[in-house]
Amino acid sequence: MSLDGKTAVITGGASGIGLAIAQEFAAAGARVVVADIVEDRAVTAAARISADGGTAVGLPVDVSDRTAVEALFARTEAELGPVDILVNNAGISIDRGVRRITDDEWHKTIGINQTGVFLCSQAAATSMIPRKTGRIINIASRAWLGWFGQLAYSTSKGGVVSATRSLAIELAKYGITVNCLAPGLIDTPLLRNEPAEVLERLLQAQPTGTLGAPEDVAWAARFFAEPDARTITGQVLYVCGGKSLYARPAGQR
């Protein structure tokens, strides 16, 4: 299988897109670390993957905390071997207009979505560089292009896109590729929290008129993760049903 023998760490791996990626990678032969801020959820998700025949462990991590991130990579190496593939998926979205967003909400969003990518990528790159191989896949969002009520979220995801490009440029010579996926509307618990009329408006703004599935994103992540993808780096691939091409601004609220 295409990821046989690889160790993959997926942050925010216990639900939604992260879980789908963990399952996809495990099915492709990787040993996966499901890392999540809630340890119980990480352990439960890992158990589910193991029950399906994969190799997985669930570990806790707060990606915005250096000590926690270093502990995650140390435990990963001890239990499953050094990390070959890192998926920076952990993220939060606090939708708030410019006049209402608080300092705490802003810093929390930047801390998890942006600083989390920095800390985890630093730990992974340090391990990958001497081995001259590795894959880092960042989950940004189509929203980095800008969207109503998403000042903090889109700013943080714009940082993820920039981080992807700088990391790709710096790490290319070590055989490490760094790419980014920018999902649009994906059917996750996060989205299902939205009121029905908001969801309806969002769907109307979709060229395909459909919601994506977490598995759609996982499939694209696997494409970047495979050893054969060695000459693709620094790319931002939208998995958004065409929303990045043009979205009618119907999501205004």
Partner: peptide, 25 residues
């Protein structure tokens, strides 16, 4: 068949040679 939610996109297969252009993102 699994790529059905990806449309209108440009993916550079270029070893990173696209990265130093402002148009590439």
């Amino acid at each position: 068949d699994r790529s059905g939610y990806i449309t209108g996109q440009v993916l550079y297969c270029c070893g990173g040679a696209s990265l130093l252009s402002s148009l590439s993102v």
